[in-house]
Design a protein around this nucleic acid. Structure first.
Lengths: 219, 219
DNA sequence: TCATACTAACTGACTGGTCAGTCATTTATT
DNA sequence: AATAAATGACTGACCAGTCAGTTAGTATGA
């Protein structure tokens, strides 16, 4: 229970209080994601976030300066796993370009679209204009990296003869677009026309890979 | 000035009052689009809409029952041109499937993405969960029709040998996705990384048409 | 053609409810 | 005992929606 038991364990140098504080911070960002997803930023009540996290309203303000800051911190916290994955993925380069592109897309579908993280994408689009900080952070840390990663893979594919040469303006956006639309559809229109994510994923990669593929008998 | 001058003119049977009322209604929906686009539904003030339309706050409530209704009516009013176009487009069927698909996409880019109407798409995505009525209307009137139109074109293309057969789940969403993402990018990330809509359009159709194209030497 | 009465359209000060953020007090930990 | 963490009643700003009062347009009669 105290730090004497295992003084070398990297994260157990924390006191009980520090661990509790960290757990509460996590509970708060989880609750914030749930509440903001449900009703959007403006209509979300701090009191509801507090209740969902099992604390009182005042406590929220011990962890976050303001509603705005809570929102921004929540997005950053929820997206950091994506960041570290992307950082690693740009380096790793085993397999064909096709396989690597597929692996990235599969990762994105399973770790973002198929869980509550997809709500964050909708929130960024919805609230982006009101949170220039956040839009900039998201662009600099997620979109730019995603773009670099995809463009590097495409470039390799062109050199290996798997893909044809395309002029690149908006290439990343067009390739990722299907995934984004899936996130939106699931959160807005699914009740009227349900979307089967697995089948959708197949259509998406089929269309994109065929779209990128070098023509076998061109010229 | 009065109706005796030209009693047969179809739209001049209206009194001066009626014409003014119609003009004011239009001014109000225009102002509402501008204000809602700028700050989102919740943060928008009715007083700002009123000021932008050149009337006082009370007047807004002579034309619309509530803030919600103003928002929904605005979306419907701004989208009705799309509706009539789509209704006609499903019938008209000259040219190859490729040409028809291209024509539809070109129309969408020029009449929706390249003007302030693209803000509506972002608003639907942002506010959709809070406006089930509106999401349903949008799905039933815009998305379903768009889907029917695109699938009909694809089907014709398959029969004529232009396109390959694809299993259709989410085909419309994947084809239209690039356009949606362009709308979002323009309104959220353009300031950090500007998007040239014309070049983007070229990439989009290039990727989609190549993705749909039947392989020349298959089987 | 003007004067008058009538009515539709508009106005903006006001009300009532909501909620972000505060802080004196209480509770838990060391 | 000392200190850190948590609480929730409270405050002040904000704003959707109202309505008594005002203005502009229209119809009628002299």
């Amino acid at each position: 229970m105290n730090s004497i038991i295992d003084p070398l364990e990297p994260d157990t140098t924390q006191s009980k209080r520090e661990r509790q504080k960290e757990a509460k911070r996590l509970a708060l960002t989880d609750a914030a994601l749930a509440v903001f997803s449900r009703v959007g930023f403006a209509a979300a009540k701090i009191e509801d976030v507090a209740e969902e996290a099992g604390v009182s309203k005042g406590t929220v303000y011990l962890y976050f300066e303001s509603k705005e800051q809570l929102f921004e911190e929540m997005v950053k916290a929820k997206m950091s796993p994506m960041l570290s994955h992307m950082a690693g993925a740009i380096e790793a380069s085993s397999g064909s370009a096709t396989d690597r592109l597929l692996a990235q897309m599969r990762f994105f579908y399973s770790r973002v679209l198929n869980c509550d993280r997809r709500q964050i994408m909708r929130l960024i689009m919805a609230e982006g204009p009101n949170f220039p900080h956040l839009a900039e952070f998201y662009h600099a840390n997620i979109l730019s990296r995603g773009q670099a990663m995809i463009e590097a893979i495409i470039q390799d594919g062109v050199e290996s003869g798997e893909f044809r040469q395309m002029q690149g303006h908006g290439l990343m956006q067009n390739i990722a677009a299907g995934a984004l639309v899936a996130a939106i559809w699931k959160t807005v229109f699914d009740r009227f026309q349900p979307l089967d994510l697995d089948a959708y994923f197949e259509t998406h990669i089929d269309l994109i890979l065929n779209g990128l593929k070098a023509a076998p008998t061109e010229n």
